[in-house]
Design a protein around this nucleic acid. Structure first.
Lengths: 199, 199, 199, 199
DNA sequence: AGTTAAGCGAGACGGTACGTCCGGTCTTGAA
DNA sequence: TTCAAGACCGGACGTACCGTCTCGCTTAACT
């Protein structure tokens, strides 16, 4: 999946590839997962269906590549903000995520991709490696910086820490189990940092 | 959707209703969301398709009712364990959840229902009210007991607290973003209770 | 294939059946065999493709039924003309056939059906039984009448006789191996009746 | 289409041309018209599709050339047998044709070519000129010899005569409208020669 | 002998149609 | 009126070929 530095096949049409990924992302945003079809993507991209089936094993793989393409050459690559104030920085980041989730143009494609991941362990592994992995590294890097500044314990399990901060957000977004507001983001950061127990 | 106390309709066949819900749950467990079809459910239940469409607005609603039926008349209704040791009690509960997620007979139907919820805000609301709501009440009750025992601060936002403990679990389960083990459950509880910051 | 006196299924839609047969015949006449598609027939008939595949095993079977429907409740059922002058009567009939072959609205569907028959022995058998058979009976009846009038030998093999008169016509039509004119029809009848040898 | 004396193009690969014609004929014999594809021919011939499309305008044209190649450098070029006994000679020839029609290795390719001819008037003209024409000349030559020997009338229309003898055979073969046996061939010759009318 | 342009195999491409599956609606006959 | 059964229209699936289009490569002809 995805390439271009490696020639993949030599004869593959870059224009078609781009058109397909763009169409997939846009359609996912417009019609949602339930009505997203390979046929629709092909039509929107001005491409034969076979050109999709030739290069991707499933609708989900196309969507994944669309996100991968998008993620490359984009902002946020340089890392999370680091003003020295961990709590404030995390709030900025989570509020931004909340804003993204509120925009149907991001909410819907992301939901679609998430569903594909939920149904396809192989795709989930790929997602973990190529999309979530790098993002998680940035998050952990920010926490590591805080550790080194003495703001977090040396022995903190950073994977669990990341889960603790972002997990509730994802879960609430997916299940629509409550309002996703800046206030919620703030409370979440505070509670995760200080813990439930009294100090 | 759902009935029982209210007769819903004088002539409705209880046998068909049960057969449909059972078939839906079993099929979801056997074939997964992607291949779960109304026709399949009807065939397995020995029922006409119309009987499904007559009483449920969507495949997701059937699945929802299947879970609802299952949740009624079942253990765990009486509340989470309360030994006085909050941390230990939470670990027991989360370990049990981890075990459920590991069993395909629960993992797959639950994934299927989750996907339906993700795609259908109405169903999400129903889920929040009828399935997740009661469960969340039990969780909050346990935390409230801890508050009253002085183990948790009086001003703790219990909704956020519940999210903080269970959100990461759900998120890791759905995304398969890491191993779902008892150890993870334990660390999660500890970290949520004590927070990330050093004491 | 085909029925209606027998209930076939009880639930079959007569309107759809008719629309399909009409569409098939018309399309065969308009676009020819090479471009005749099940999809096209379904679209023209305002019918789902499945409704075609449910009742007919192949495109050719549909076309066959279209001809069968057409042949029923139609003129010419009463037999070939019999004025007492065999040669003149045959010329009238063959000239009429020549005229039909010249009309694309008959030429093309008939070519299409013929091709299907050529490729499908089962269909050929059905054709022989249901369409060609009855027609051949009429032809043989006329020749039998001539026999009884003493115009043809008692021991003449009527099947061969029919082939001898109509075979060359069909062959020339299918292969376009020469002009199909009234003159040709006339010469054919004369030559077949008198034979090649000198008298 | 076809070349040989005229070089058609300085660079054309004779090996590819032969491989294509052979593959086309063999595949037509093995899979029949309905499943004969340009891609299949190219694959079997070990040739790029473009090499076929470069030199032939259609699948039918390839098949035609395959027959043309076959017909050249083959027996029967010297003419029909002439023992002086027209009836016996014709029976020999028609029996041989009946035998060919019974062999799937000839039956199927010939059916395929016939279908192409039926759908393509241009191809039909070419067929009439290059394949059927020469063969018809041989048939007419034999009849002409009979005329000169006084066995056939001077004013007999030889085209019609040929049609009368071979048309019924072709027609019965294509439609499978009856058994194609030596006995049928014999009766056909006799009836055509003597005519239907009593002597 | 070196250059060049064609033909070649391979196979990607935009398309059309295939035959199947399923969604959601509608109809029939039995209970 | 509900139910099992299942036909109906529609739309998408994933596959097979169509005829066109490059891509490098080989190879013959013409400098």
């Amino acid at each position: 999946m995805q390439r271009r530095t490696t020639p993949d096949a030599g004869r593959r049409s870059e224009a078609s590839r781009r058109a397909i990924l763009t169409a997939a992302f846009e359609l996912a945003g417009e019609v949602g997962y339930a009505k997203l079809s390979v046929e629709g993507i092909a039509a929107r991209a001005g491409v034969g269906k076979q050109t999709i089936y030739r290069w991707w094993p499933s609708k989900g793989a196309v969507l994944f590549d669309a996100f991968l393409s998008l993620s490359q050459g984009q902002d946020g690559q340089e890392g999370l903000p680091d003003t020295g104030d961990l709590e404030a920085d995390l709030k900025v980041v989570l509020r931004a995520t909340v804003d993204e989730f509120a925009d149907p143009r991001y909410d819907r494609p992301l939901r679609a991709l998430t569903i594909e991941i939920m149904n396809d362990p192989e795709l989930a592994a790929l997602y973990a490696e190529r999309l979530d992995g790098p993002m998680k590294e940035l998050k952990k890097a920010r926490l590591r910086a805080a550790q080194q500044a003495g703001h977090l314990p040396e022995d903190l399990d950073l994977d669990v820490a990341v889960d603790l901060i972002w997990g509730p957000l994802l879960s609430r977004w997916l299940h629509r189990s409550g309002p996703l507001t800046h206030a919620y983001a703030d409370t979440l950061v505070e509670t995760a940092l200080h813990g439930l127990l009294p100090r």
